[in-house]
């Protein structure tokens, strides 16, 4: 057996494999639900209702989707230029770190001045964290998959050190936890009385901005060219290394906004469990979205929906929430296979 590229795939070729991938994901999850002793139909019903069935559920899903949109965009932007940023987790914490450093009273400014400042400094912090692997790659050819991945652990330990030391909240009863943000540093709710903060709006806006950058700007054009064919890009005069560094800065900044938005919008302080792997889940989101910035929004809602829905399903049906992790893993693997099948056909020798 071997793979043969399809030169000009038909519409059915483009749509059928992803649809089959989603179908197969549902089948796998059903089998597991049955193994756990539950009726798969009611399990999926409960997941759907738990994720989108009420105003509360829907807002919870949107809140959960917000950091995933940021980290998904971070991965999508970087992967488009074939810069494999696996370190969104570290960049997220960098954003969160700057938010608590500047937002706990150091800058006694009104919201209108403080929040934009926090946004800018979070972005700079995330960009800086990814700048190091980017320079190691462009200067010395060090594989960024390794450096960005390992940076996650280094940075998390660094945060842990800060939370046990200089950043430790004196009123925190000994917990490794930062002081709380001042009220001016909190992201207000989008609509009064509803649990949805402005971070979600910022995420949607970012997706549109990235989309426009990718399709209309020379930087977006350069990033796509470098991602598709470095050799031809360099021959044509595109400064490949500079483009990779710019891509890294953009990607790191986006991931850092997830940290900013979680601290300023939800948690109000920094702890080591700020992110339950948003940085890694962002990679799944970006892959499911086929790296399209607007697709990232849809994919983030889908992934957040599964997580939120699985929580309430678990309470009602007694099926462990791990089902959500398995569904996502299966969806990702099958989607990668499906993408391959849209571009190649399997030929038997």
């Amino acid at each position: 057996m071997r793979l043969e590229p399809i030169k000009n795939p038909s519409l059915a070729r483009n749509l059928l494999p992803p649809a089959l991938a989603l179908g197969a994901t549902v089948v796998i999850a059903s089998l597991l639900a049955m193994a756990a002793g539950a009726n798969p139909f009611s399990v999926f019903g409960l997941i759907l209702r738990g994720a989108f069935g009420s105003q509360f559920a829907l807002l919870e899903t949107l809140n959960r989707a917000t950091p995933l949109i940021f980290t998904g965009l971070a991965a999508a932007v970087a992967f488009r230029a074939k810069f494999w940023n696996i370190g969104a987790e570290a960049q997220l914490y960098a954003g969160a770190l700057l938010t608590v450093m500047l937002g706990t009273g150091v800058l006694p400014w009104p919201s209108i001045a403080l929040l934009p400042t926090l946004v800018v400094f979070s972005i700079l912090a995330g960009a800086f964290v990814l700048l190091i692997p980017a320079l190691l790659k462009t200067r010395f050819g060090v594989d960024e998959v390794v450096t960005t991945l390992l940076f996650n652990f280094i940075f998390l330990l660094f945060i842990s050190m800060l939370l046990e030391g200089p950043l430790k909240d004196p009123m925190g009863m000994g917990w490794p936890k930062s002081a709380r943000l001042i009220d001016e540093a909190r992201l207000p709710r989008l609509v009064d009385g509803l649990r949805l903060h402005w971070g979600f709006a910022l995420a949607i806006l970012s997706a549109f901005v990235i989309w426009i950058i990718q399709t209309r700007s020379t930087l977006g054009y350069e990033m796509r060219a470098v991602g598709l064919n470095k050799q031809a890009a360099a021959f044509a005069g595109i400064p490949v290394n500079l483009v990779l560094v710019k891509t890294a800065l953009l990607s790191g900044g986006l991931a850092a906004l997830a940290g900013f938005s979680e601290v300023a919008g939800v948690k109000a302080s920094l702890t080591l469990d700020l992110s339950p792997g948003f940085g890694y889940t962002g990679i799944i989101v970006a892959m499911l979205a086929l790296l399209h910035p607007l697709g990232v929004v849809v994919a983030a809602l889908f992934v957040a929906g599964i997580f939120v829905g699985a929580d309430s399903m678990s309470r009602a049906a007694g099926v462990p929430t791990y089902l959500a992790d398995i569904m996502l893993a299966a969806a990702l693997l099958l989607m990668v296979l499906a993408i391959m099948l849209t571009r190649f056909r399997v030929v038997r020798d």
Binding site: R224, A225, L228, N229, Q231, A232, F235
Partner: peptide, 9 residues
């Protein structure tokens, strides 16, 4: 193919 053009562009 490899230097002169970007195939997917």
């Amino acid at each position: 193919h490899k230097t002169g053009t970007i195939s997917d562009f």
